[in-house]
């Protein structure tokens, strides 16, 4: 049973607060989460910087042999993921 850690993403992940999310994620990773879960239930907007944060996290997690999941993605965000092709490389549930 992998140890799960959940991080709740903010309502709008824009250029201004994407670094805050990045810090949060880094902190959780530093504590050694085997399975990182990003809960995007409340997120209605994500900009390219936000996508970059998710991508960077994915890269770090994958390199350390752990896994990352994104859950509760709203349709408009899902559309964004599909548009950019991120849905192909990330585990979205």
């Amino acid at each position: 049973m992998a140890e799960e850690k959940t991080v709740k993403a903010m309502k709008r992940i824009d250029a201004a607060n994407a670094p805050i999310l990045e810090e949060e994620l880094k902190e959780v990773i530093a504590k050694g989460a085997e399975c990182l879960i990003i809960d995007m239930e409340e997120t209605v907007y994500i900009c390219s910087v936000g996508l970059r944060v998710l991508l960077a996290t994915q890269k770090t997690i994958r390199n350390s042999g752990n896994e990352m999941k994104i859950i509760h993605v709203l349709p408009q965000i899902m559309e964004n993921f599909e548009m950019t092709g991120f849905s192909g490389i990330m585990t979205i549930e």
Binding site: L55, E82, M83, T84, G85, F86, S87, G88, I89
Partner: peptide, 13 residues
């Protein structure tokens, strides 16, 4: 194409 990943995002895209 359906899912055009940005460049430098993932290898062998």
């Amino acid at each position: 194409q359906e899912k055009p990943l940005p460049i430098a995002a993932w290898e062998n895209t």
